[in-house]
Amino acid sequence: MDSRLAVELAGIRLRNPVMVCSGTFGSGSEYGDFLDLESLGALVTKSVTLNPRAGNPPPRIWETPSGMLNSIGLENKGVERFIQEDLAHLSALELPVIASVAGSSVEEYVEVAGRLSDSGRASALELNVSCPNVKRGGVEFGLESQAACELVTRVKERCGVPIFVKLSPLVPDMGAMARLLQEAGADGLSLINTVPGMAVDIEGKKPRLGAVTGGLSGPAIHPIAVRSVWTARQQVGIPIIGMGGITDWRSALELIVAGANAVAVGTANFTDPQATIKIIGGMESFVQARGLDRIGELVGSLRV
């Protein structure tokens, strides 16, 4: 692995800046059949809540032009089983693992984050305050800066690992939100979660998704992600993990040039389980061809 790709995020060393997005890589090991997990920069696990959640009624998926809608609804086995069954497994790998946390109250976020932090098996946590697919939990913390900052303060008091906050592109003032979260002690930002969306069966006059609305991901949202990262970068110095519609090394580097320190690949894993590996290879060639000392030189290098 080319050491010029190595980056550091909130004190965590990554061998390269290519990670995988929460919810698109399972609890981590499933894709081990298709690629060497230890060649990734880091892995973000599916969001977990305090108790198991059944998720939303089917259908949960609809393909759209250059993307997909999902309405999974945070189906997960609950934090305890996740720590015992999945984190135990993952922590044996030479790979930073970022555990994603969801909840429907401040108390739940703090409790789940606390247990994950105490497990000693997560390098960092990502607070998912931007899931469009649950009625409570998530967006009401993520769209309003006061609630988001209070959440970060409370989680930081309880946890000993770096805390990333994952935001929705619908945040009304992304720059202000980013700055306030940085002031509240967030160690980094993850941008972006899916964009709320909907599709309709015009014959049956029914929504395509059982939950009626869902979250749009894939190439269709890439420009929204680039804009969110760029807007936040102008206001903060903390690390940003850029994600949304990455399919290849070019779309990944766009986010880095716009201000992301690392990137995460989501929907593209479904299309091509080796997408991350190809992106890492493409970045290596790029860094080599441009004679860069380290990929970090590109972060926020956008000239406007």
Partner: peptide, 16 residues
């Protein structure tokens, strides 16, 4: 059922 990953990671192909 409609599928995304096909290998159990995305929980997209749920049936009741």
């Amino acid at each position: 059922q409609r599928m995304a990953c096909g290998i159990g990671v995305c929980f997209g192909c749920a049936v009741k």
